[in-house]
Design a protein around this nucleic acid. Sequence first.
DNA 1: TAGTTACGCTACCTCAGGTATCGATACCTA
DNA 2: TAGGTATCGATACCTGAGGTAGCGTAACTA
Lengths: 193, 193
Amino acid sequence: MSRATPSPRSPGRPRTGVDTEVFAAALRTVQELGYARATVDRIAAAVGVAKTTVYRRWPSKGELIVDCLLDAFGPVPLAEGASRAELMSSAIRWVAAKIGEPGVGDAFAGVFSDAVSDPALREILSARLQDPYRLALQGALDEPENRVLFFIDVVVGTLLHRMGMTGEPMADADVDALVEMVLPHFTEGAGTA
Amino acid sequence: MSRATPSPRSPGRPRTGVDTEVFAAALRTVQELGYARATVDRIAAAVGVAKTTVYRRWPSKGELIVDCLLDAFGPVPLAEGASRAELMSSAIRWVAAKIGEPGVGDAFAGVFSDAVSDPALREILSARLQDPYRLALQGALDEPENRVLFFIDVVVGTLLHRMGMTGEPMADADVDALVEMVLPHFTEGAGTA
DNA sequence: TAGTTACGCTACCTCAGGTATCGATACCTA
DNA sequence: TAGGTATCGATACCTGAGGTAGCGTAACTA
């Protein structure tokens, strides 16, 4: 474990571990200024680091934000012995809460927006951010891919649309309504798509 | 009647009526190049008009696209004697079909994205594009504002998320699933939010 | 000490949104 | 027919953001 990696130690000056600070500064800056005005330059300055240092770690702003979101979301908390209804309900409330955290919803909506015009970023967003959660849900719910993708479209789409149109995360009462609307469709075995 | 309007005729060279061509060129360009690369300059060039002429009519690219979408969507086709279920079902299928039209979905997702970082554009998007349909639905369904807003978040959010993540509009089978999921929540009187 | 790599800094490029200016043009009215 | 007015295309320009290149310096290893 301590040695098996092919590079026991790479020569030269080691990178400073600023990833965590960059993620935090990114979310903070996005929250304060909005996604578009949250320049890579500004984020770097907030960390006390040069812009070029950020670009040495992430090839684009989009990928930085994707990593930032991966860090913010972490793994899905999938309770072991829970029922399907409990699993889906907790997943919905979990993602709603995450999107409601300061900066996260803005960053998510922003990078999602960028991806609309940028197929490469869309691919990254899909592969790095959506797929892990999709696969976890497929396993936990024993549902086919297209059903889980539909589930994600509904839940994330709804939450992001609310965030984008109002600037505020969805209130708890509406998240409750979302749960109540989605659950019957997936717990009754009558799904079409 | 022939005079009551305060401006019987304004002096000077009249504006050329290029709005329709600009809308068409905008959708075409967005479809071909994506939202971000669909420059106002390019759209104008596609019409055979100077960029400044476009900016004389619309103060920003965002407002141009909003008008473009208003033109593309037109009024909601709300059948008169239809039941609530029929009304909602037809509304969902209508907006899904519109978003599926070439360029419309991209333009919608693009301007929505821009609005995330631009409160002024968000206000315009909400007031000019969302509110008319929201009010029409409120009247037709006799539902309170927050319920209709939730309905819009779910339907439009889901469709845009699919469009944004895949680059393709939602397939009919999934639109069917969306209808099947949403309708029970709104036709049974047990709504919470 | 030599080699390697990351660092901050600065300068730069591209591109897009948006503005200003100007001569030419089209329309109305006197 | 002449004058007033507002739009037209064209061009040039500004700002801001993403992203890159080059350089001298700092940190680490052998």
